[in-house]
Design a protein around this nucleic acid. Structure first.
Lengths: 203, 203
DNA sequence: TAAGTTAGTAAGCGATCACTAACTAATGGT
DNA sequence: ACCATTAGTTAGTGATCGCTTACTAACTTA
């Protein structure tokens, strides 16, 4: 039976993709190699022909996430030369990325040590630092021009918090609202607060 | 050896407290009943004399956290009748609580990561909703008086995000900065943005 | 002091975990 | 058409998980 044997490269990405997909629905501690293999339709042992350890699989998953994130950020950055437009595009890109790959926050919020944490932590740090830079950059460019009160660093912390907060709430409510729409609404509010524009609101 | 037999009530709270303490250093998936029992100095089976299942233990842990949080929030609320002072006190209380009980964010961020999630989720929701109310309340009281732009609901989302963001960063850097001090700095910045006060900054 | 309750232990249950060794069969180059 | 390579299987390993059973020592109380 069975039949289809895939080249290692294809199977490897299939394993990673399947892991990411299952991670959106399965608690990370319950996502065993058996579970992944069963979903793909191969035996559990076959996983270990492509990854020496499970930690290596987690590493590959994180690196895939990093690559997707960087791609999304890059297209967002290229949208406009205007700093605040770039900031909005980056925030939107991150929200969209998470909306269509809910496994990302699962991995991000598990920052505090899963068993394979040692293998994962550096990649993890790199992703967060990368996003921070993409937010910090337009805030620096807009500093002492459009932005009023906070330093670019503090501003980026506020925007990062905004992201984490709404993603957290989105997960708590099990995706009960439009992450991108609600997120961008808050982003615009925060931008309005910082630029001092009245934003068409009352008062 | 052994010797000390404790009344069930005492032992029960000892198990919960030990779990909370270990949770600050141990990955949640690695925190087994054996681990907890070994730390206390009883057998693993003894855990199950006090809790019918491990999920029940997680439930008791969460309820203890809830009780501590509510106590901290209540003393914070009683500090001043001024809305913004109450808001600051609540934010400070939450930051202090987390600083001295780092297990709390481990539990909070592990939403959906644990096998016993079903038993935990309602308590979890209650805690987050409780905090949201304590933040929403002073913002409503200050609405159309001191606050300029956002609605109280959006404002509380921004403050909740601020909390989650800085706690997340604090954990990522392994407690590498003063959570309360840095957190309150951001809180004051956000308050300044909302009240429109210049806050003694340049520009 | 005898009887009952309670907190504890020792041992082991079945299930599942990550991982491995030995073998098999599909694939692709010559 | 052959044959080396290699993706995959079968069948295990020891460790550890949550949890149970059978028993015991200590405390309480009639």
């Amino acid at each position: 039976m069975s039949g289809t044997r895939k080249p290692a490269e294809d199977r490897k990405t299939e394993i990673v993709d399947t892991t990411l997909r299952l991670l959106a629905k399965t608690p990370i501690e319950k996502l065993s190699t058996s579970h992944i293999a069963r979903e793909i339709g191969i035996t559990q042992a076959a996983i270990f022909r492509h990854f020496p350890t499970k930690a290596a699989l987690w590493g590959a998953v994180l690196e895939t996430v990093e690559a997707r994130a960087i791609a999304a950020w890059d297209t967002a950055t290229g949208v406009s030369p205007e700093p605040m437009a770039r900031l909005r595009a980056t925030m939107r890109a991150q929200l969209s990325l998470i909306a269509e790959c809910p496994a990302i926050p699962v991995l991000i919020f598990s920052a505090g040590r899963i068993t394979a944490e040692m293998a994962i932590h550096p990649i993890h740090l790199r992703i967060v630092q990368g996003l921070r830079m993409r937010i910090l950059d337009p805030l620096r460019a807009a500093a002492s021009r459009e932005i009023s009160t906070p330093s670019p660093e503090d501003g980026s912390d506020l925007f990062l918090g905004l992201l984490q907060g709404i993603v957290f709430r989105w997960r708590l409510t099990d995706g009960g609202f439009d992450l991108v729409a609600e997120g961008m609404r808050l982003v615009d509010i925060q931008i309005a607060l910082m630029t001092g524009s009245t934003n068409g609101q009352r008062t």
